[in-house]
């Protein structure tokens, strides 16, 4: 019962914050609401017995990635509201996007409510997970079954670091030529 209540509260906070992300004029506010959305999602993860995911959701997402966002906003000095101009040049963009969004939500709702989700049941019931520990299980799987994707992920991160540096650094030589 408590869990149900918690879900409703957290779900509502998530939706409201997500809407605020979209409709806030100031990008800094958007970023802060996004952080709140992520934290609420972390609570939902705990409700789903995914404690490790909840932890990295807070640390990586709400922490590291969002700091990066705020940092860039600050760097570009974008805290003014007039970045986007006073009016939208594409008149029909906003209404059609919202209508389409409504249709999409309705359709997703219809699908989820009318479908009986089936599948092969795994061995990790919440009880067995709590005996071993969620983090330990995730770690074990990462280094056994998913060791290859795990290594690929590290290469990906490395490539991303290099890419970010190259893209973001000032092209001093070119500027000198100009």
């Amino acid at each position: 019962m408590l869990a149900g209540l918690l879900f409703i509260i957290m779900g509502l906070i998530t939706i409201v914050c997500a809407l605020c992300v979209v409709f806030q004029k100031n990008p800094v506010y958007s970023a802060i609401f996004l952080i709140q959305t992520m934290v609420s999602l972390a609570v939902l993860y705990v409700l789903l017995h995914a404690q490790f995911i909840a932890a990295i959701q807070v640390m990586v997402y709400a922490g590291a990635i969002m700091v990066l966002f705020v940092f860039v906003i600050m760097l570009l000095n974008l805290n003014k509201t007039d970045v986007e101009g006073d009016y939208d040049k594409l008149l029909f963009q906003k209404p059609s996007a919202i209508i389409l969004g409504f249709i999409l939500v309705v359709m997703i709702g219809v699908v989820t409510l009318n479908t009986v989700f089936q599948g092969t049941q795994g061995e990790y019931t919440p009880e067995s997970i709590s005996q071993i520990g969620n983090t330990q299980l995730v770690g074990k799987m990462l280094f056994t079954k998913y060791v290859f994707p795990f290594e690929i992920a590290s290469v990906l991160l490395f490539a991303a670091v290099l890419g970010a540096i190259i893209l973001a650094k000032k092209q001093i030589i070119k500027e000198k030529e100009v």
Binding site: T14, I15, A18, L19, V21, V22, T37, A97, I98, L100, G101, L104, V105, I108, G109, T112
Partner: peptide, 10 residues
């Protein structure tokens, strides 16, 4: 699904 749609509309 709702979160996804909000993101998409955004």
């Amino acid at each position: 699904g709702m979160l996804f749609t909000i993101g998409a509309v955004g």
